[in-house]
Design a binder for these strands. Structure first.
Length: 421
RNA sequence: GUGGCUGUAGCUCAGUGGUAGAGCCCCGGAUUGUGAUUCCGGUUGUCGCGGGUUCAAGUCCCGUCAGCCACCCCA
C-alpha cells in the first residue's frame, strides 16, 4: 500500500495507457468536428462564480469547486463551458461571420460524489452552432454526434439519437391548461416519467388536471408533434442517417433553458444511459452576454463514452489499437557492441531526423534483451549496430527477414521497406 | 447529502481466534551478437487507520477513512 499521498476523491491519474485512451477519444472528437467544418476554441478553467449562478441559480454553488482567490474574488473551476462560450461569443460577436461553428475539448470540474461514469474531474467535448435559428443547424449537430459514434466504431445496434422538441411540450402544456409559471415543474415530471413508478407520475399529473393516458397519447404522436421534428427527421433521413434516429418525446432534458429541439445520444445496450446530449438554447447568450443570438449545441463527456467503448467489442478493438499505436516505436536500434554506442547514436539521430520514432538501450544490455525490448515496444524494425560498423543490419521484426546495408544508406533502405512517415 | 458492499504484496485475490500466503507483474540468471516457451533465483506487507473484546485479532465488535455500486442530482 502506497504511503503518503493519493489523488483527491474523484480526481484521476492518467498512466500512459489511460492517457493514450483519453487522447484517442480527443482525436476522434477533433477529427469529426473538423470534418464538419467546426473550429476549435478554448476558455479559462477558472471563472467568476456569478457566471454560473446567473445561468443556473444559487443551488448550483453546491456542485461547484469554488473558493475565494487572493484578490477576494469568488471564483469557480468551470463545471461546464456554455456560459463561457456565451460570454465569448457575445463579447466579440461582430468579429465573426454567422453562423459560428465552434467546438472545444476541455477539462471540467464538479463537486459531486464519484461514481461510475462520473468524477469530479472530467473532459468534455462541446460543439455549438451560434447565430443560426434554422432547425437544420440542430440537424447538423445531431448528424455530427452520430458520426462521432460511428467513428469510434459504434453501429445502429449500439446507440440511437433520441430527438424531441421542447416547444411541442410547451404547446401541449398550454393547450392542456398548465399555468405558465408551473411549466418547469410540469416538464420535470415528464423528464422523470421513464424512471418513476406510474402511480407516482399519475399522482403528480393530477395537479395539472392531466393523467398518464393523455400524456402518453401525446408522446405517441411522435414526429407529428411539431414541424421542427418533421424537418429534423427529414434532414437526417436525407443524409442517410435515419437508422440512427428516433423521435422520443420522453426526452425533455431537465434544463430550463432549452427552447427548441433537444436530443440525446443513447446507449441501447445494458447501460441504457445518455452518453451525450444537447439542444437549442436561443435565450441563453442574451441572458449571459447581453446579445441576442440563437444557438444550439451539445456536449459529450469522456468518462461515459470510454466506459461504453470498453464494453463494446468493435470500438474496444479500435481503442486498443490506438493505444498500442500511440506507444510503439518504428525502429529499435540494437547496440550489439557497446564500443559502438557513439556510432549507434548517430544512426538513431539520423533516423529521428528523418521522422522515424526510434528507441535504443540506454545502458549496456545483452542483445537478446534488446530484441525483447524492441518487440515489447512494438517496433517494426530493428537495426543492429555492432563491430561491423559502418555496415549495419536491418531486421524486419514481423517476418524476421534481415538485410545488411551501410549506415549512410539506412534511412533510404528503411523508407523503401516501410511506408513513408 | 442517503444507503449497500469491499479494504491483506505493485496487481488479482486466498487465509477455521493460534508462525503472513498463492498466482501474475517486475528485476536477475540458464557459456559467445537475435525476439518464443520453459526452468532457477530475487525484491515487496503498520493485513486502510484508530480504539475495544481476548492469554492471543488479518479473523470478532465499535468508530473512522478510502474505493466501488445505487439513490439524490445531472449543466
Amino acid at each position: 500500500m502506497a504511503k503518503g499521498f493519493q489523488t483527491l476523491p474523484g480526481f484521476r491519474d492518467f498512466y500512459p495507457d489511460e492517457c493514450a485512451a483519453r487522447n484517442y477519444v480527443f482525436e476522434v472528437w477533433r477529427k469529426v468536428a473538423r470534418r464538419y467544418g467546426f473550429v476549435e476554441y478554448e476558455g479559462p478553467i477558472l471563472e467568476p462564480t456569478d457566471l454560473y449562478r446567473k445561468k443556473s441559480g444559487d443551488e448550483i454553488v453546491n456542485q461547484l469547486f469554488c473558493f475565494q482567490d487572493k484578490g477576494e474574488r469568488d471564483v469557480s473551476m468551470r463545471p461546464e463551458l456554455t456560459p463561457t462560450l456565451a460570454r465569448m461569443a457575445a463579447a466579440r460577436q461582430r468579429d465573426f461571420k454567422k453562423p459560428l461553428r465552434w467546438f472545444s475539448i476541455g477539462q471540467h470540474f464538479r463537486y459531486e460524489k464519484h461514481q461510475k461514469g462520473r468524477g469530479r474531474e472530467f473532459y468534455q467535448f462541446n460543439c455549438d452552432i451560434l447565430g443560426e435559428e434554422s432547425v437544420f443547424a440542430d440537424a447538423e449537430l445531431a448528424a455530427l454526434s452520430i458520426d462521432l459514434m460511428r467513428e469510434m466504431g459504434f453501429t445502429a445496434e449500439d446507440f440511437k439519437i433520441r430527438v424531441s422538441d421542447r416547444n411541442a411540450w410547451t404547446n401541449f402544456a398550454e393547450e392542456s391548461g398548465v399555468p405558465e409559471d408551473r411549466l418547469t415543474a410540469f416538464l420535470q415530471i415528464i423528464d422523470k416519467m421513464e424512471r418513476a413508478p406510474e402511480e407516482k407520475t399519475n399522482e403528480l399529473l393530477k395537479e395539472f388536471d392531466l393523467d398518464l393516458e393523455k400524456v402518453r397519447a401525446f408522446i405517441g404522436t411522435g414526429a407529428d408533434a411539431s414541424d421542427t421534428l418533421k424537418d429534423l427527421i427529414a434532414d437526417l433521413t436525407s443524409r442517410g442517417l435515419a437508422d440512427f434516429v428516433e423521435v422520443d418525446l420522453n426526452i425533455v432534458r431537465g434544463l430550463a433553458y432549452y427552447t427548441g429541439a433537444v436530443f440525446e445520444v443513447f446507449d441501447i445496450g445494458k447501460g441504457m444511459r445518455a452518453v451525450a446530449g444537447g439542444g437549442r438554447y436561443d435565450q441563453l447568450i442574451g441572458l449571459i452576454g447581453g446579445v441576442d443570438m440563437p444557438a444550439c449545441g451539445f456536449a459529450m463527456g469522456d468518462m461515459v463514452i470510454t466506459d461504453l467503448i470498453r464494453e463494446t467489442e468493435a470500438p474496444n478493438q479500435l481503442l486498443d489499437a490506438a493505444i498500442a499505436g500511440a506507444q510503439s516505436v518504428d525502429v529499435f536500434v540494437v547496440i550489439a557492441d557497446e564500443e559502438r554506442r557513439a556510432d549507434a547514436n548517430k544512426v538513431v539521430q539520423d533516423l529521428r531526423n528523418a521522422g522515424w520514432d526510434v528507441a535504443q538501450p540506454l545502458s549496456s544490455v545483452k542483445v537478446g534483451k534488446q530484441f525483447q525490448a524492441a518487440e515489447q515496444q512494438g517496433a517494426g524494425f530493428a537495426v543492429v549496430v555492432g563491430a561491423e560498423f559502418p555496415e549495419v543490419s536491418l531486421k524486419n521484426l514481423a517476418d524476421r527477414s534481415e538485410s545488411k546495408c551501410d549506415a549512410d544508406e539506412l534511412v533510404a533502405s528503411l523508407s523503401s521497406l516501410a511506408p513513408a512517415k
